[in-house]
Design a protein around this nucleic acid. Structure first.
Lengths: 352, 352
DNA sequence: CTGAAAGCGCTAACAC
DNA sequence: GTGTTAGCGCTTTCAG
């Protein structure tokens, strides 16, 4: 064992106490930088040295300090994700795919919630930029223009997702909400529905789909689309509650009145399932009296009875692509295409 | 002094290019350390200096580099969260509360997925420890014993959640799964149910609830509990599919056979809703023919028709308490109580 | 209340 | 292939 120094170290700064690369290097009998290379670029090091360093690592339980590494290399291997709120089920697949893809490449995910209001947005951005992440993934919108400029100024690669804005900040993986609205309107029209309605959360993307849906219906010669808006995030309860608003005649005359709504496009599967549940309770027949189409294609849409038609978005694909973009950028590779339209798919089920 | 080369420093390392504290200090006409104090401990600085520094910050758009700060202070202001998988809805409230509480105190959340299998567990742990977080929150179990020892050895404060293990690693916020199982069994017995069954995911905590449920039923003099197990994470589909297994007589003779199951305790609301849906499709009357109790008290339980009885866990409370524990520890405060039993509540609804 | 010096743990530059 | 040196940007320690 090592002999204890009789006098305590004089004015040494209190180190974290953890094993450092220095310790490993000393144990292996090499210079710190060599130990560093053995760990990071093993190809640049002789097999013997490599082995000795690995042994030293194993013996000491050394775990590299990525804070120090990040500071020295200006590469934090951290990616920040901004979501409106983590508890909406919508972005879950995206988050999961993001985490997995990043993690396979040695990156870690940091999560920040911007809220649907966007009051704390500036503070969040500062917290994120301060960590010097190698990339930022935005889901949903950045509210203020100042925020957008600030992000841009930070020089950190950014991927916007879940939308196809005309003026991307940097990179983008999304789909056209307008195209979704149009496709659903055409679909319902094709199925013989004539009195269309929308039930949407009040976030900008849902509103975009609803507006495109209404325009497309009009273009098809249908009567004006009844639009009901509920606050985001959407809930089952809001869906249940909305039936009365959408079909005011219900209580008195039953369905089937000439001008009764016969199809509703919901901005989320939650709303759709809520609507469906309430319709059943009220004795309405779905799809005979009322067709319902959701958005997001959560498991609950497929497993409801009747199964709910829904717009499927490849959320995992979005997450994975976003991660690839960021990793490529961090590795210094040039990204040829900076915008990916991941599309969507209308899944037809019993509810329509 | 070493002799200065006559030419200016050529071999300067490529700095990140961002504004640094030095820049701010120079602009404000003070030493870097004074600028640092103006930002971190404004009370220690004269009002004039404070003002000048703040102006310099505003003018330059300075954002402190927390990597550097963390390295120097050995406080990263980062908290790591480990979840089995991010896409289960169960931990969402916990994650949200955690994020919010941390963030209000200037901490950021890092997310890692351990998976239900726990193959990558070691790599994940290394990635986490390497960032030197000020705390780690564990939801669900750490699979290997080596992992637990390694975590402990890292010296990082740990909060385990969603369980009440007899031997906590460090701090703990949870509830007793055994007590849940017992309470539900007693409740169903009190409601006159006699042929009980469980439908559970195969994760350890769900199994614990199911086992306690079965033991309690036996203690109450009821016949053996039929137990059906499905792989975690649980799904609506698994719930729908399980009905046939739980009530094999269904197709032939209808419900009401003397030994037919008359109550099922599900390990998640997803399973409960799936079961309920399939029961309705099969013409079974819930609760008359079959009582259903879920777990988690997701919105879908309350909003289903009939509404599903469920065990409510204060997930947000868990997240908030965990954050408080970690923040207190990081600020050097002694935590008196290291274990909090957050309890649970059986919410009685129409389904039972 | 303010500052100079030292160094957190690591890696980019340059030698040899 | 390996080592030396000089920082990354900040905060601690010690002095005024």
């Amino acid at each position: 064992m090592t002999s204890e120094p009789p006098v305590p170290a004089k004015r040494s700064r209190r180190s974290s106490g953890a094993v450092t690369l220095h310790d490993v290097a000393r144990l292996a009998g090499v210079a710190p930088i060599t130990a560093s290379r053995a760990l990071n670029t093993p190809a640049q090091v002789s097999p013997e040295v490599l082995k000795k360093v690995q042994e030293a690592v194993a013996r000491t339980g050394y775990v590299p300090n990525r804070l120090a590494g990040g500071l020295a290399s200006t590469r934090s291997r951290l990616v920040a994700l901004v979501v409106p709120t983590v508890s909406g089920p919508v972005f879950l697949d995206t988050i999961q795919a993001l985490t997995e893809t990043l993690d396979a490449a040695g990156y870690q995910l940091m999560v920040g919630q911007a809220g649907y209001e966007g009051r704390r947005e500036d503070a969040l951005l500062e917290a994120i930029i301060g960590r010097r992440p190698d990339g930022i993934v935005l889901t949903g919108i950045l509210h203020s223009d100042a925020s957008r400029r600030r992000l841009l100024a930070s020089g950190i690669p950014v991927v916007e997702t879940w939308d196809l804005t005309p003026t991307p900040l940097d990179m983008l993986v999304g789909f056209s909400h307008q195209a979704v609205g149009e496709a659903v309107a055409r679909y319902l029209h094709g199925r013989g529905r004539r009195r269309l309605a929308t039930l949407s959360g009040d976030d900008p993307r849902a509103q975009q789909r609803a507006a495109a849906f209404a325009r497309a219906a009009q273009a098809l010669g249908l009567p004006p689309v009844r639009a009901h808006v509920v606050p985001a995030p959407t809930t089952l309860q809001a869906g249940r509650g909305a039936l009365a608003a959408l079909m005011p005649g219900l209580a008195g005359q039953g369905a089937g009145a000439a001008d009764a709504v016969d199809a509703v496009f919901c901005s989320s599967d939650l709303l759709a399932l809520g609507l469906l549940t309430e319709a059943r309770v009220q004795g309405l027949d779905v799809p005979a009296d009322l067709a319902v189409v959701g958005f997001g294609n959560l498991e609950m849409a497929a497993q409801a009875a009747p199964a709910i038609s829904s717009v499927n978005i490849n959320g995992a694909g979005i997450g994975e692509q976003a991660a690839r973009f960021l990793i490529a950028r961090a590795e210094g590779q040039a990204v040829a295409e900076r915008v990916v339209d991941i599309g969507f798919e209308l899944i037809e089920r019993q509810s329509s």
